[in-house]
Design a protein around this nucleic acid. Structure first.
Lengths: 240, 240
DNA sequence: GGGGAGAGATGCCGC
DNA sequence: GCGGCATTTCTCCCC
């Protein structure tokens, strides 16, 4: 135990990343209050002083601290206390280490950022570049138009020159989405001083309640799936 | 490399939890598509076949698979490919291991569940038990009403016997929250056939736009913070 | 038990 | 830092 504590202390001083497996109890105070009794866990302490704690099952961390915490370890009788405090966030995490099974510390090097495709923004871009997907004669003016009441995914004129707001959803559009659309349409009516503004939900599906509200408001739904660039990329690759 | 691959393979067979640090590239396909070029990362594979991948900075995982994936590792030239597939979720994760720095595998034992206080539900319960926080003369009927009205946090009568809907938010209430409230109030008016239904947002703060919309709709905001049971508990303890 | 639907909780991004 | 929304989510209900 003592050797491992010293090793952790040194790694912290050298600002190395650390992975522990240990039996411990955890007390957290911050956005909420949480307590977790003794059990075996993974603990990751990164060089930027963020921390992640995982139980032996499940994909979600049981607790974490965001980058910029101050982390320290102290012996306390037979045990050790690993403390992390994030003053700016008013968060405090105390880990009472009852048994340290393993310690690994290392400097890690990674400057990469993940590229994601198939997001709502990708959908909006697709509709902007291929307006006929929305409707024949649709002429988009902008994507991600910012208004005071939020930003509009795609905004343009329909074939009869009526202002049209398109709200994209990657999955099933729900009540929420219809209200969002309603808010934008109301807003545009007011700001532009026009009576007639159309609203369209672009989504692969719509829930029945949402559809009802949609009709009540005179809006419509078009079936659109989000694009999957990487999938296409993979298919191309698989031909090689 | 070869020894480490064998060790991982054996650990997988024995259903042990594994922690790696490795240089790798990652391809994910599922709800979205994602690609992450070569870099150093932490990889945790748990006994329930959930996985978590962390870059050397930041508190969030760059990728993960939920429990129930099938995980395998294969040599591929100089590298190794760690594959995780979750057929039920239609998710696929391929990790191309260029260099394995460390491997640790172990059986971990943890049956504990975290106790959390200070959630939105705790707020609703607090208002139900202490209705005078909402208003003098407020008489709550229910909390977390899962009815045709939706999930109403607190529902009751004010001192003048007017139906009142209270929507709780732990943090700053935003446009979203006001719309939620608006939806509930509209629905109750319709279902109960009464004109007058009041709406109240209970939150520590409210954004300026949300407040504007709140006033437009004749609702009000009361300043309420979520309760912190454990914090109180800690204070009690610290007196000992 | 699986799918749908509603909403919570958190991160990100733009101002 | 605040205020908008998106989400590789969560949970519950219902079939």
């Amino acid at each position: 135990m003592k050797t491992k504590i010293i090793r952790i202390k040194e790694a912290l001083e050298k600002n190395r990343s650390i992975v522990l497996t240990a039996r411990c109890a955890i007390i957290y105070s911050g956005r909420a209050e949480a307590f977790l009794p003794d059990g075996d866990r993974f603990i990751i302490i990164k060089a930027d002083r963020s921390m992640v704690i995982h139980q032996p099952t499940g994909s979600n961390p049981v607790n974490h601290m965001r980058e910029g915490a101050s982390v320290s370890i102290e012996q306390s009788g037979k045990n050790a206390i690993l403390k992390a405090a994030h003053l700016a966030n008013k968060e405090y995490l105390d880990i009472e280490l009852k048994k340290i099974y393993s310690v690994h510390d290392q400097c890690l090097d990674d400057g990469q950022k993940q590229v994601i495709a198939g997001t709502e923004k990708d959908m909006a871009d697709m509709l902007f570049s291929n307006p006929e997907i929305v409707e024949k004669g649709f002429r988009p003016l902008s994507t991600e138009e910012h208004t005071k009441y939020g930003f509009i995914d795609v905004f343009g004129y329909d074939k009869d020159n009526v202002l049209t707001v398109v709200e994209c959803k990657r999955y099933t559009a729900q009540l929420n989405a219809v209200q969002q659309l309603r808010r934008y349409v109301e807003r545009i009516r007011k700001v532009r001083g026009v009576d007639k503004v159309r609203g369209i939900i672009a989504a692969p599906k719509i829930s029945s309640n949402a559809e009802k509200m949609l009709k009540d408001w005179g809006f419509r739904h078009i079936v659109v799936k989000p694009p999957n660039y990487l999938e296409r990329f993979d298919r191309k690759q698989s031909k090689l």
